[in-house]
Computed example of a mutant assay.
Amino acid sequence: MTLHIVVAGAGYTGLGAAKLAARWTGAHVTLVNAHDKFVERVRLHQFASGQTLRDLPLSALLEGTGVELVVDRITGIDADAHTLRTAGGREIPYDKLIYALGSRADLSTVPGGAEHAYTVTSLEEARRLKEKLSDSQTVAVTGGGLTGIEAAAELAETNPELKVRLVTNGKLGEALSEKGRRYLQSVFARLGIEVRENARVAEVRADGLVLEDGAHVAADTVVWTAGFAVSPLAREAGFAVDDKGRMLVDETLRSVSHPDVVAVGDAASMRRPDGQELRMACATGLPTMQRAVKGLAARLKGKEPKPLRFTYLNQCISLGRKDGLIQFTHGDDSPREAILTGRLAARYKEIIVRGTVVFERRPTIPVG
C-alpha cells in the first residue's frame, strides 16, 4: 500500500512541504487548506492599503506535482486514529502528517481587541481593514515589530491623507542597530507617522486605544500587530506543545510526542542548537521546512537525518514601495551596524518577496 502523507495548511511552508514530500518520498500526498488560493501573507499590508495582489490558485501551483488538493477547513485531529476531521464532514487518514497551520494575530490579550481591532494576518482580515480604511481619517498601528513597522509605513505612503500613529510598548526598531533605528526614525518623520514608545495598551475601543497610564490615542481604525497565536488543534489533539500552543519538535522538526508527525513554520517551536528560539518568518520557515521534509524522506529510506542548523543573515523591512531597510545581523539575529537603505533596499526586499513565490513554484531551490 502506498504511504499517505497529509499536509495541514497551504501557507508558505505547507505548500512547499507538500510539493517536496511528493517529489522526495514517492508517497501519495494530500494537501488540506481552508481556501483554494495561495495568499502572499507578507504583502497583506500592501493589499489593505489599496494595492492589488496576484491571483495564485493552489491548483495551478500544484499542477504536475501529483499532490491532491482538498479545500476544506480542518476542525480536529485524532492522533491515535491518524485522521483529520474537516468542517465539510471529511475524515482524512494519514500515515505521516506535516503540520503547517501557521499563525494568526492574537486579539485576545487586551479587552476590546477582538471587537474593534483589525489585522493583516489573513486575506479576509486584510480585506476588512481595506474596507474600513476607505472612510477613516486616523489609524493607530499597535506593535513595533517588523509587521507593525511595515504596515504603518505602507499605509502612510499609499494614503498620504491618512494620519498614521504607531504605538509600541518598547522603542521603535528595538531589534535594529543604532544606525538602523536612526534611519527608521527619519523615514517615519518623513512619512508623518506619529510614534508613541514605551506605551502599553490597556483597551481597544471604537475610537482608538486606551493606554495603561490612562492616556487616549484617538483613531478611527486600530491595526493590531502586537503578538501572534497559533491554531489550538495541536494542543487539542494531545501533541506536546509549548505555552503558546506550538508543537514541540526535535532537531529534525519531528514531534517529540508523536514521531509520525512533522511540524513546520509558525506552528512549530523551533530552536537552534544553542537553544535560541527561531522567530516566526519566511526567512526561518522556508529553509527549516526544506530540512524537515529531507529528514522525513531520509527516515522513510531507513537513514538518520541531519539535525537542524540555522544561521540568520539579515532582517528585510519594506518602508513603503520606494524605501526600505536591510539590517544585517550576526548568526544569532543580533544586529550588526551594517545596513542597506533607500530604493536599493526596497528593491532588495521586493526581490526577496517575489522570490518566495518563485520558491513555491520550485521548492527545491536552496534557501538556507
Rank of each mutant, 00 (worst) to 15 (best):
K163P: 02
T138P: 10
L166Q: 08
N159G: 04
A175N: 11
A175T: 15
G148W: 05
E197Y: 12
E161S: 15
N159F: 07
R182G: 14
A152S: 10
Q137N: 13
V139K: 01
T168G: 09
G145T: 04
E124T: 14
G180P: 08
R165I: 10
S177M: 10
V187G: 07
N159L: 14
K130Q: 12
F188T: 00
E178W: 01
R196H: 13
N169Q: 11
S134R: 15
L146M: 13
G143H: 02
G145H: 05
G144Q: 02
A152Y: 10
R165K: 15
L146V: 15
L172V: 05
G173P: 12
V187Q: 12
E178T: 11
L162D: 09
P160D: 03
A175Y: 09
A202I: 04
A140L: 06
L133R: 11
S186V: 06
A202F: 02
K132M: 07
V201F: 00
R200T: 13
T119W: 00
T158D: 10
L191W: 04
R200D: 06
F188I: 00
R165N: 11
I193R: 01
K171C: 11
V167G: 09
S134H: 14
I149N: 07
E150I: 00
R190F: 01
T121D: 08
